[in-house]
Simulated scan of single mutants.
Amino acid sequence: MTITLVIADDHPVVRDGLRGIFAAAEGFEVLGEAADGAEAVALAERLRPDVVLMDLRMPGTDGVTAIGRLAKSGSSARVLVLTTYDTDSDVLPALEAGATGYLLKDAPREELFRGVRAAARGEAVLSPAVASRLLGQMRAPVPEELSAREVEVLGLVASGCTNKQAATRLFISEATVKTHLLHVYAKLGVKDRAAAVAVAFQRGLL
């Protein structure tokens, strides 16, 4: 069975290279090429390919937006992301939008062929680097949430209060403030006040 494809990438050289790779291999047919996400969606709806090879960072409509549009339109095409980026901010949005798989452009030719075949069957496809990243996230401990009182204490510390001043404002003992801070340090994985405040701001706790 021949697997039909649409290639979406804003670089003509990349599109030409991919077309040549698949043209030289048995069992594949490239139906069209797109230079951005909007064009990819239009081609996928008109040509009904089995697989869309989708770059993520393209001018105009990006890959993630295009993947979401295809998913909402009920397109039968499977989207296999083919990009140079493997950061969390790229991988997760693409998979959440509906991509069947995620490969990197430095993947060997045979890995690319296997990925396209698997995507056409509806199977999840992940490059080893991306799979390792996602597995690491799953194994990472879930951050323990701060209690309302701990956030309150940390907020006063962030505003410049000493332990004594925080205790006075909250009508608790200085020892209790220290205990709350020790719990905060443990939950945030830090060792001092400055680091606790910095991490709290990063996580949007303050």
Rank of each mutant, 00 (worst) to 15 (best):
L5S: 02
V6N: 05
V6Q: 10
A8C: 12
D10S: 03
V13G: 04
A25S: 15
E26N: 14
V30L: 12
V30A: 07
G32P: 10
E33R: 04
G37K: 10
A38Y: 00
A44P: 08
L47I: 08
P49L: 07
L53P: 15
M58H: 00
G60R: 09
T61A: 12
G63M: 08
K72T: 12
V79A: 03
Y85I: 02
D90L: 02
L95A: 08
A97T: 07
T100N: 10
T100G: 11
T100M: 10
Y102F: 15
L103R: 04
A107M: 03
P108V: 06
P108N: 05
E111G: 00
V116Y: 05
V116G: 06
A118M: 05
A120V: 05
V125T: 09
S132D: 06
L135S: 01
Q137E: 10
Q137K: 15
R139L: 15
P141L: 12
P141Q: 12
E144M: 12
L156N: 04
Q165T: 09
A166F: 01
T168V: 08
T168M: 12
R169L: 12
R169N: 02
F171S: 13
F171A: 14
I172E: 02
S173N: 09
K178M: 04
K178Q: 10
K178L: 08
T179V: 12
L181T: 00
L181N: 02
V184F: 01
V190G: 01
V190L: 06
A195Y: 00
A196T: 01
V199M: 07
